[in-house]
Nucleic acid binder design. Structure first.
Length: 831
RNA sequence: GCGAAAGUGGCGGAAUUGGCAGACGCGCUAGAUUUAGGAUCUAGUGGGUAAUCCCCGUGUGGGUUCGAGUCCCACCUUUCGCACCA
């Protein structure tokens, strides 16, 4: 009789029953340890895609496993619900409001998640676009404003002409908008910033708490923050009563500075050249650089171009005159926008000096070369360690010694100071779009910018707004919203009309989950500390800088506010790979999308989960395979079939297994059962390698089949069969929650399998009576013998030497050496 | 250009500590069952070979070792990150 797992009926049945159960609720047992597993919440676009299926399946396996292991588990879900797509959809479809669109999508995706069998505690659902949530996002902004961590400043910012809003530096990728790819334009605007730079050092230093983060991601963040320690040095100008300030990480090479360079945008440029014979030439050059910058923006090795200004600076250590150039390779946005150039020890300066025939003066001598470096003969810059030459009293010092000594001396002499520079810029959070949390600031003629007090929060986003993008916030046109009174003096005032970057919303949602329904606070400290930091965070690598850096910053601010103990939000982070089809990311334009809905309809949720976890380790990209899906389905049917076929035998069995009485095949099944438990436990619990965990369950199932195939029903050890079936279901429960639950009930349990304890393996059951010893001759496998497990080294060697094949190899050769690896192999070295 | 990761059958992948390469799955071959197909069950499946012997085999070339997918050196390819940050 053929029997198939009727997934549709089973899923319907258990979805209904689970709905009224407390299975997925956050654990509260004071005797258990707490565990917080979290997947990045989705943007509610309307439908789950395969990427969602993958990340949420991973998280669900961890959550279910940890529950069975005896932890209180917090496994929540929510919606990153503010953002442009809602507005764009509303604009595209005409008569639907972003709010309506968002809430409709949320309802649908929530149903899809439930259908997937994902075990979330929906009592803690968080939606960033709901008033209950964004009230606290605004509250955090106001608190930061009070702590001087939020400020308004006019500066050059990145403008996306397609999204019609400004963007943070982190949201500009290859000079394009992170969302739509459109090339960004610089604009001078007054905008709100969060002072993430104040946390730059802590964001770097606290990586020591994050041993388990992927090295790659830490490197990316380190690069992004870009800390460099150096010295700010003042060079007097020759004919002007002014100074030229430069930042350098190599104060030890000051004696080797043979020219200075200003960025074309540097304010001193006009002062130095105005009225001079060089003025016209310099202006032409700057115009050329500006034009070139746009045209050759993407070229990797753009040529270094420069021009002499005719002006000179004076080296403060030896009063030598140094010519000042303007060049395209110095940027106004970093350091002071000016450098001292040391061509002998910096490759860029070296290239430039050779091109414009500027002297090269070596001041660092490599230890391992006898001849003194000569600037005129060098072929490339020498940037490594060595000792100082041509540097007066500093000669002979190592680079490290000289760095410290010179920085100190120069500071005392008053023309330099030690300084650390960062690449990181403050986080621009103003957005000129509608669907976001209004920045809770009121402008009063008398009091200036005033934060909206807590009792007046939230500043509600008005509903009826003409929100087509216009380059200005749509809220500007809503008089009721704009006109208000000053919270401080009561006088007439206007509200800030920009909304916040959606990355602000998602920078603290993981804390809200710990106390999601608190109406008095963002979250209570005791609740936060009970769960936070997140033990295991799972999400896409695309957030390596953006969301993860912002969240780390927020967590540190929260800590400083005394609201939580943790200084880092995510103890472990798993970056899951993409889901590909035909070697490419699934996308509508490529027409290679597989809709999870279709897979669920044809094979059911358990098959979908099982396939996506089996096909590849989680951090690697996964190639979608319809055949692979069928394979996963086939395996579930194999489990279903052997248990239902033998249901009477299994159901009625109550006896315990007596390992000593098992026959040979039974013993093998018994052993594999225990080794599977061990393997699956380690693979889920420690390695997060679900593909090999599943293969271990398959091996167990295969072994059950081979046990059953070899004997008549009367010969089946039903206690063993029952235990094997139970363990198979327990191991499978995190992966295939529906099938395991149904069969668990059928074999006689009344309580859910998801409340059962994770099985334990028995070390003694793993040990074999008989082991296989590999015999190698000169490292090549030539024979294998089976011996008793407790055999001595001498006995093994005796047996090996007695082997016919070994004898034939030994004939006419000399045995030089015998290597014995206990329980594994014997290697005979012969000549 | 710099840095990191990866490269294993026809395919996805396994080998966690230097010790039987290819677990598990897909595909394929044969058999059983079936009117037939599908499904299922059984056996086989890295290449060469009649073969269970033997030879070859983890991107390429060297090295260390009794023994290397695993360690070291050089190179090739792919992916990712950084790319004038003074």
């Amino acid at each position: 009789m053929q029997d198939y797992y009727p997934f549709d009926k089973v899923e319907e049945k258990w979805l209904r029953r689970w709905e009224n159960s407390n299975l997925d609720k956050t654990g509260t047992d004071p005797d258990k340890e707490n565990y917080y597993v979290l997947e990045m919440f989705p943007y509610p676009s309307g439908n789950l895609h395969m990427g969602h299926v993958r990340v949420y399946s991973i998280g669900d396996v961890v959550a279910r496993y940890k529950r069975m292991e005896g932890y209180n588990v917090l496994h929540p879900m929510g919606w990153d619900a503010f953002g442009l797509p809602a507005e764009n959809a509303a604009i595209k479809h005409g008569n639907i409001h972003p709010k309506e669109w968002t809430w409709k999508n949320i309802a649908h995706m929530k149903e899809q998640m439930k259908a997937m069998g994902l075990s979330y505690d929906w009592d803690r659902e968080v939606t960033t676009a709901s008033k209950d949530y964004y009230k606290w996002t605004q509250w955090f902004f106001a608190k930061m404003f009070a702590r001087d961590l939020a400020y308004r400043k006019e500066s050059t910012v990145n403008w996306c002409p397609s999204c019609e809003t400004v963007l943070a530096n982190e949201q500009v990728v290859n000079e394009g908008c992170e969302r739509c790819g459109t090339e960004v334009e610089p604009r001078e605007l007054e905008q709100w910033f969060l002072k993430i730079t104040e946390y730059a050092d802590r964001l770097l230093d606290d990586f020591k708490e994050l041993d388990n983060w992927p090295e790659k991601v830490k490197t990316m963040q380190k690069n992004w923050i870009g800390r460099s320690e150096g010295t700010r040095i003042n060079f007097p100008l020759k004919d002007l009563d002014e100074h030229l300030e430069v930042f350098t990480t190599r104060p030890d090479t000051l004696y080797g500075a043979t020219y200075m360079v200003l960025a074309p945008e540097h304010p001193l440029v006009s002062e130095l050249t105005e009225g001079s014979e060089k003025e016209e030439e310099v202006k032409e050059f700057i115009a050329k650089v500006k034009k070139q910058k746009e045209e050759e923006r993407t070229s990797a090795e753009s040529e270094k171009l420069g021009i002499f200004t005719g002006a000179y600076a004076v080296n403060p250590v030896n009063d030598k005159e140094i010519p000042i150039y303007i060049a395209n390779y110095v940027l106004m946005s970093y350091g002071t926008g000016a450098i001292m150039a040391v061509p002998a020890h910096d490759q860029r300066d070296f290239d430039f000096a050779r091109k414009y025939d500027i002297p090269v003066k070596a001041v660092i001598q490599p230890e391992d070369i006898e001849d003194k470096l000569k600037g005129s003969e060098m072929e490339e810059a020498y940037a490594d360690d060595g000792y100082l030459i041509n540097s007066d009293q500093y000669n002979g010092l190592s680079v490290k010694e000289a760095f410290a000594k010179m920085a100190e001396d120069f500071s005392e002499a008053g023309f330099a100071k030690v300084e650390t520079n960062y690449r990181l810029r403050d986080w621009l959070i103003s957005r000129q779009r509608y669907w976001g949390a209004p920045i809770p600031i009121v402008y009063c003629d008398d009091c200036g910018a005033v934060a909206v007090p807590e009792e007046d929060l939230p500043v509600e986003l008005p509903h009826d707004v003409e929100f087509s993008p216009s380059g200005e916030s749509p809220l500007k046109k809503v008089d009721d919203f704009v006109n208000t009174s000053c919270p401080q003096c009561g006088g007439p005032a206007q509200r800030e009309t920009d909304t916040m970057d959606t990355f602000v919303d998602s920078s603290w949602y993981f804390l809200r989950y710990t106390d999601a329904n608190n109406e008095q606070k963002a979250f209570a400290k005791d609740k936060a500390d009970k769960w936070f930091p997140v033990d295991q965070y799972i999400g896409g690598i695309e957030h390596a800088i953006l969301h993860l850096l912002y969240s780390r910053f927020f967590t540190k601010v929260v800590h400083d506010m005394g609201m939580a103990e943790a200084v880092e939000p995510f103890t472990n982070w798993l970056a899951q790979g993409m889901v590909l089809k035909d070697g490419a990311k699934m996308s509508k334009s490529k027409g290679n999308v597989v809709d999870p809905k279709d897979i669920l309809e044809e094979y059911g949720a358990d098959t979908a989960r099982l396939f996506i976890l089996f096909a590849s380790p989680p951090e690697k990209d996964l190639e979608w395979s319809n055949k692979g899906v069928e394979g996963a389905n086939r395996f579930l049917n194999r489990v279903w079939r052997y248990i239902t076929d033998n249901i009477e035998l299994i159901k009625n069995e109550e006896a315990e297994i007596k390992p000593a009485e098992l026959d040979k095949d039974a013993k093998k099944l018994y052993r594999i059962m225990h080794s599977s438990i061990k393997k699956v436990s380690e693979d889920i619990g420690q390695r997060l390698n679900f593909n090999t965990a599943i293969s271990a369950i398959m091996e167990l199932t295969n072994e059950v089949y081979s046990y059953l195939n070899d004997r008549e029903e009367a010969e089946i050890n039903s206690a063993l069969l029952r235990t094997a079936a139970e363990n198979t279901l327990l191991l499978l429960a995190p992966f295939a929650p529906f099938l395991s639950e149904e069969l668990w009930e059928r074999i006689g349990y009344e309580e859910s399998i998801h409340l059962a304890s994770w099985p334990e393996y028995n070390q003694s059951a793993l040990e074999k009576d008989e082991i296989t010893i590999v015999i190698q001759i000169n490292g090549k496998v030539r024979e294998k013998i089976n011996v008793d497990a407790d055999i001595s080294e001498e006995e093994v060697k005796e047996k090996v030497m007695a082997e016919e094949k070994v004898q034939s190899y030994l004939e006419g050769s000399e045995l030089i050496k015998t290597i014995y690896v206990p329980s594994k192999l014997v290697n005979l070295v012969i000549k």
